[in-house]
């Protein structure tokens, strides 16, 4: 049975994710062995009194630097993969991607504006950059939605076209800002857009968490309806699905997830496209299993890519760049496999 298989994949990948988190948090200039990492981790469990056999400095590095970074990577990977998986169902298109409605481009524009013109002030530990990137992403999708709406309905084709238009317009404005601004801001914008988890801390995780919980929770609730939508909008309607309402919920949830991720980690491409695709091979198209499995696998992939990004060479490579370099060829391989006839 595929349902049993789906549950098994989710369980196994969840265990793998925990292992990945502990291992990844150990990697870095100061290596922390998995056993030590686990002991440091359990030392914070209330009621558990472990004799401190670990290095106190290592504990600080683990708690203050490594753990927030891997946790943030996991959250971002989870958010992007879930959004991608849901969009692929909503648009009935296996090539759909969480940024296709202009959210990443809008966020890039917001971020560029913040870096170039607003300098640096902070609200509750978070700078202008993530705030403006988040708002930029939301604004872009709102505009796309408005442009695509015809009366009470929002046709999917309209969304895609408006998404492309708004996306490229936003990027052209980003280019304009890049051209006009000074060298320092230009470097900052370009670097930020490559996507990275470098500045991760617990405050950022705390900012991310409510948006991600809301978005992920919403998407997981609509698995059955998304399945019905794969049969076509009219068929879904005949099965009692309020299609326009469903679309709106999926778009709002997907936008929240993507905008929040881009705001704190820049644009990390390919995760949202490749991971749901890959997971579909394992669990089939049923969104009730596909979405949670994609979320967990996405978390593993981003944490893994980020660990590579900060350990391959002496200076850190942005994780977005690593994802793009690894993800592109991997996606092509997946595509070739799919295009070839099954018996070949």
């Amino acid at each position: 049975m595929r349902a049993a298989r789906g549950r098994r994949v989710i369980l196994i990948s969840a265990i793998l994710l925990l292992v990945t988190l502990v291992l990844a948090a150990g990697v870095g200039a100061v290596p922390i062995a998995p056993s030590e990492a686990v002991r440091i981790l359990f030392s914070r469990v209330p009621g558990l009194h472990l004799t401190p056999t670990w290095d106190e400095m290592n504990a600080v590095i683990f708690w203050q630097i490594r753990l927030p970074r891997v946790v943030m990577g996991a959250l971002v990977g989870m958010a992007l993969s879930l959004a991608g998986g849901a969009y692929q169902g909503l648009f009935k298109n296996p090539l759909a991607d969480p940024s296709m409605l202009g959210v990443s481009s809008g966020a890039a524009l917001g971020g560029a504006v913040a870096i170039a013109f607003l300098g640096h002030w902070q609200i509750k530990g978070v700078g202008t950059l993530p705030l403006f990137a988040f708002l930029g992403g939301i604004a872009a999708v709102t505009l796309v939605y408005r442009l695509a709406a015809v009366g009470r309905r929002v046709p999917v084709v309209g969304l895609l076209l408006a998404g492309v238009a708004v996306g490229s317009f936003s990027i052209s404005l980003v280019s304009l800002i890049l051209y006009m601004t000074n060298q320092q801001a230009r470097d900052a914008i370009v670097f930020w857009m490559m996507g990275g988890l470098g500045g991760a801390n617990w405050e950022k995780v705390a900012w991310l968490l409510p948006y991600l919980t809301l978005g992920i929770g919403t998407l997981l609730l609509y698995g059955r309806e998304l399945n019905a939508l794969l049969l076509g909008e009219e068929s879904a309607l005949h099965l009692g699905v309020d299609v326009e309402y469903l679309k709106k919920m999926i778009l709002v949830a997907g936008t929240l997830l993507t905008a929040a991720s881009v705001a704190f980690a820049g644009t990390i491409g390919f995760v949202g496209l490749v991971v749901p695709h890959l997971v579909r091979f394992l669990v089939g198209p049923d969104h009730r299993y596909l979405l949670p499995a994609a979320g967990v696998v996405g978390a593993i992939v981003v944490v893994g890519a980020d660990t590579l990004a900060r350990s391959l060479v002496a200076t850190e490579i942005p994780v977005g760049l690593v994802m793009a370099i690894l993800g592109g060829p991997f996606f092509l391989w997946l595509l070739r496999r799919k295009l070839k006839p099954a018996d070949a």
Binding site: K92, N227, L230, L231, G232, H238, R280, G284, P285, D286
Partner: peptide, 11 residues
């Protein structure tokens, strides 16, 4: 309906 395109692999 006349034709329901099922492009995803449901059983």
């Amino acid at each position: 309906a006349q034709e329901t395109g099922v492009e995803f692999d449901f059983t």
